[in-house]
Design a protein around this nucleic acid. Structure first.
Length: 216
DNA sequence: TACCAGGAGAAAA
DNA sequence: TTTTCTCATGGT
């Protein structure tokens, strides 16, 4: 209960500080899933260019991606970095997506088996799978990322060296399974993390100091 | 110029 | 089993 109150307090303060983030930026669930792969270790501004290219080339479609050449796909993804790897990951994902029957079929699946299926796709790790589940399929799954680990270890709520699944279980068991809450919470964590929580000593001090204008 | 970004998988220890 | 390395462009 103490963890729940603390997590809800942090959320309300983040929301007050930054306002609603309106995540996920993207036009429809399939585009969100593509974006989840392209944003792996990459700034969103670079991902937007790649998605724009996919759209202009008629490649923002699972069938078109599977049919496209590796060269054409990689060229479109260049701005998002890791373009050769991401092209292969996108094809792997789209092959699974098509063979699964598309978005309507995915929406009918239960969350736990669907998550296992996503994790079995080469190139879809736990954070990417949970991005897809939460933001594309509206499932109450809490996304853990480097910012989540960093910020909440500073507040003493987690040790910081837990595994992904352990951290996810902590947040999901401490909070009500609310899709809107999980959506906004993760977006706010990223927003806050980009703002002040870079791993530099000066920012560490700023983030933790009581009364600091930029701390929570 | 150097560092970092909304990770994941392979290779090495 | 755990740690380290690799993938790569663009912004600050």
């Amino acid at each position: 209960m103490r963890a729940r109150r603390k997590l809800e307090s942090v959320f309300s303060r983040l929301l007050k500080a930054y306002g609603p983030q309106h995540w996920w930026p993207g036009d429809g669930p399939f585009e969100i899933m593509v974006g989840a792969i392209l944003t792996q270790n990459t700034a969103w501004s670079n991902v937007e260019k790649a998605i724009g290219c996919l759209k202009s080339e008629g490649l923002l479609d699972a069938g078109a991606i599977v049919a496209a050449s590796q060269e054409k796909l990689a060229a479109c993804l260049r701005s998002s970095g890791y373009f050769n790897i991401k092209a292969a990951r996108l094809v792997n994902f789209c092959q699974w997506y098509v063979s699964s029957g598309g978005m309507k079929a995915l929406q009918r699946k239960e969350t736990a088996p669907l998550r296992r299926e996503l994790l079995a796709v080469k190139g879809v790790g736990p954070e990417t799978a949970d991005d897809m589940l939460l933001y594309a399929l509206a499932r109450p799954v809490f996304v853990i990322d480097a910012y989540t680990r960093r910020i909440f270890s500073r507040y003493g709520l987690v040790a910081g060296d837990e595994g992904y699944e352990e951290l996810r279980a902590f947040f999901e068991s401490s909070l009500a399974p609310d899709v809107a809450l999980f959506n906004e919470y993760h977006a706010l964590i990223v927003r806050h993390g980009k703002d002040i929580c870079r791993p530099r000593p000066l920012c560490d001090a700023c983030c933790l100091r009581r009364g600091c204008a930029r701390s929570l």
